[in-house]
């Protein structure tokens, strides 16, 4: 069953059409990747889904609800967490305070504490640095914090925007391993990546965006062997 279904989505920046008739779905338990070049509309798609940008037309269904016109802050409480491009951790706040803000929509103190311990277990480095201002962490650590912070809301779907951007190869591998672990523990993943090779290697399915339209979609393994994808996105 599709937990997230996007239908005929169109988005404008002023008069410029950024997304043209985008339709795709994410089924429960999947990892779905959106790949494409810079400016293809990947981030715009994510921002529209999580309510940071308003759609001009089209429809977004999440977990049985129409969320097209719902305010972004409400969508978090419905079970969708968004790890934004560039991490955007709260630099002046401590690691712990960042994580606590991730659980902003939740009220039960014991449950929040339980999730916090789970996240410290998954990201031991965050536990080591819990009282440190988030701005002093390295890029990879900030990415972990941003992911941990999103997981604090106990989401059904986690949306990740360019998690590998600007990270060293070692961190990239670590982050992708963690994404797979998060998925295995029951969270559906929607992933946007410029690193198409990495994204396709962990995804179940993928969609290829080009200048605001989906030009190709299918099984991630098949796309990896598709000649046009190889040529455009996987060349080294």
């Amino acid at each position: 069953m599709a937990i997230l279904e996007v239908k005929n989505l169109e988005v404008y920046y002023g008069v410029i059409k950024a997304l043209k008739d985008i339709s795709f779905e994410v089924k429960e338990g999947e990892i779905v990747a959106l790949i494409g070049a810079n400016g293809a509309g990947k981030t715009t798609t994510l921002h529209t889904i999580t309510g940071l940008i308003k759609a001009a037309s089209g429809n977004i269904q999440f977990d049985g609800h129409d969320i097209t016109k719902i305010r972004g802050d409400k969508i978090v409480g419905m079970g969708m967490a968004h790890v934004p491009e560039g991490r955007r951790v709260f630099a002046a706040l401590s690691v712990y305070e960042n994580l606590k803000l991730g659980a902003y929509t939740r009220r039960d103190k014991n449950e929040i504490e339980e999730t916090l311990q789970m996240i410290y277990k998954r990201f031991p480095r965050l536990l080591e640095r819990k009282n440190q201002p988030a701005g002093t962490l390295s890029g990879g650590e900030q990415q972990m914090l941003a992911m941990g912070r999103a997981l604090m809301s106990h989401p059904k779907v986690i949306v990740l925007d360019e998690p590998s951007m600007g990270l060293s190869p070692i961190y990239v591998n670590e982050i992708f391993d963690i994404i797979q672990e998060i998925n295995k523990s029951g969270t559906t993943v929607l992933l946007v990546e410029q690193n198409a090779k990495k994204a396709l290697s962990i995804a179940n399915r993928a969609y290829v965006l080009e200048t605001g339209s989906i030009v190709l979609s299918g099984d991630a393994k098949e796309l990896m062997n598709d000649d046009s994808v190889k040529k455009a996105y996987l060349s080294e």
């Binding site: 999580t50 802050d73 978090v76 803000l101 991730g102």
Partner: peptide, 9 residues
């Protein structure tokens, strides 16, 4: 923006 992504109004 990030605050909104935490569910803050």
């Amino acid at each position: 923006g990030a605050a909104q992504l935490m569910g803050i109004n």
